[in-house]
């Protein structure tokens, strides 16, 4: 199985737990890195003073929109603005299906927009499909050459 990782950007611990459960129950064993807000996500992707950026980018970012400190749209903007991460697959996974959010998300370069179903059975299906698709079926772009 592909060694790709999932970066889950989600501030709600319940949603984190349910997502992890859904992924695990479908034998998606890849590492799931959890960032609890936008700042953490950016720190992870671009590194901080104490810890350098990871050498390998995650296979996909599952990005919630309503986040403390820096919201999901801004995180997406930063990802697309950076040469190293601009092709990184980003799936918006959020509660809302506000038209405004969908349009903004795609405008900023999201690869997909998925609304979290309330029904956990549906939710599990969605998480499974996402995992399968982005980790197994989807081909990630090659890492950009270093400067």
């Amino acid at each position: 199985m592909n060694a790709g990782k999932i970066l889950l950007v989600e501030d709600n611990p319940d949603d984190v737990a349910l997502t992890m459960r859904a992924l695990k129950s479908h034998n998606i064993t890849n590492d799931v890195i959890v960032a609890q807000d936008g700042v953490e996500a950016i720190d992870y992707l671009f590194g901080t003073k104490g810890r350098p950026a990871p050498t390998d980018l995650p296979a996909v970012v599952l990005l919630d929109l309503k986040l403390p400190k820096i919201n999901g749209m801004e995180v997406l903007q930063r990802i697309r603005a950076d040469e190293r991460t601009r092709l990184l697959p980003v799936v918006i996974l959020t509660s809302s299906d506000e038209e405004r959010d969908i349009i903004d998300g795609y405008s900023l370069g999201a690869n997909s927009y998925v609304r979290k179903p309330v029904d956990f059975v549906e939710f599990t299906k969605a998480a499974q499909q996402l995992g399968l698709y982005w980790l197994l079926m989807n081909r990630t772009p090659p890492p950009p050459r270093g400067p």
């Binding site: 709600n12 319940d14 349910l18 959020t94 509660s95 299906d97 506000e98 309330v118 956990f120």
Partner: peptide, 22 residues
Amino acid sequence: FAYSVSHDLRAPLRSIDGFSQV
């Protein structure tokens, strides 16, 4: 208000449904 409702009101429902299923 609607924006906030669409984001925040569904999250607890997801937890209720999800953990019930768990």
